Simulated scan of single mutants.
Amino acid sequence: MKRCKQLTACAWLLAAAMPAGAADACRGTIYLTFDTGSQSQADYIATTLNKHHVKATFFVANEKTTRGDWSLDPSWAPYWKARVAEGHAFGSHTFDHVYFKHDDAGGAIAVKPQFGASAGKMLSVTPSEYCAEIKRAGQRFEQLTGKALDPIWRAPGGKVSNRTLAAGKACGYTHFGWAPAGFSGDETSSAAFPNSVLLQRALANLKDGDIFMAHLGIWSRKDPWAPANLEPLIAGLRQKGMCFATLRDHPGMKKP
């Protein structure tokens, strides 16, 4: 290895390379989570997590990708199988990336799918139909990998109501959003919110127990978040004494 020219650079490299269990004790736990998206950063994120021995949680939906296919197509089976083998956790992000809009009269739920046969249309669905949409992602994921999803889900945009949360719970899924400090900002304009600003904000504000959220690629962001920020984020959090865990180990999973 070439000799580091700056002490800060050496510290960064050492922290980034440190396995999750290398510290004598964790001063806190951060839950890294990634939602499907354009998938443009999917390989980089997976390689980086594996390189630094970090287990994360992936929330999956069938989204259009930069490869011209869909994130839950059979063409993505090798990718998801590899992540399963690495020991990550997986939850539903609804199959068609269905946005909750508002609670309708009579117990129904107004939604707007981003993809699928009803993409861009306002729909009114029953709680059981909403539950079925959560389950669809899991059914496809199991077809691709032979692995059932963990009993967790995340609503697109994090938008929920008591009714949608109840619908998810009724079909066995616990909802997980993210902490205010855990919003990566990868959906924002890279001109208005440069990666350096997003990284500094995350390192300054993330605390024990926080859930962090980013995507496996965002169509609109010109300067991708992950290549600039993921390794420094992992290193910086480890320097603060943080360890990483999947949502399988989150206290919220232990609630009835």
Rank of each mutant, 00 (worst) to 15 (best):
Y99A: 13
P113N: 07
P127R: 09
W70K: 02
A85T: 11
A42D: 09
Q39S: 09
G107K: 07
A61I: 05
S38T: 12
C131I: 02
S128P: 00
N50R: 15
V98P: 00
Y130L: 10
K101Q: 15
D35N: 13
D69E: 11
L123I: 04
S71T: 14
I109S: 03
H97P: 06
Q41R: 01
A108R: 15
A46E: 09
S71W: 07
P127E: 12
R83S: 02
T126F: 06
H93I: 05
T94G: 08
D35K: 08
K51E: 15
A42H: 05
A77G: 02
A42M: 03
W76C: 03
K64G: 04
A82R: 15
Y130F: 15
D103S: 12
S71Y: 07
S75C: 11
V54S: 03
H93F: 05
H88D: 14
Q114A: 10
I45R: 02
S75Q: 13
L49C: 10
A117F: 02
S71D: 10
I30R: 02
E129D: 12
T36C: 13
A119W: 09
K112N: 14
K55G: 06
A108S: 15
T36W: 08
I45L: 09
V111A: 13
E86Q: 15
V125F: 04
P127A: 11
E86V: 02
F90H: 05
K81D: 00
W70Y: 14
G120R: 03
P113H: 07
V60D: 04
S40E: 13
D43L: 13
V84W: 00
A117E: 11
G120Q: 08
F95V: 01
Q41L: 05
V84R: 01
D104L: 10
D73H: 14
W70L: 12
P78L: 04
S75P: 00
G91K: 10
Y31K: 01
C131E: 11
Y79F: 15
S118I: 00
Y79C: 08
A85M: 09
G107P: 02
N50L: 14
Y99H: 15
G120M: 09
A119R: 08
T126L: 06
D43H: 12
G107R: 09
G91D: 04
T94K: 02
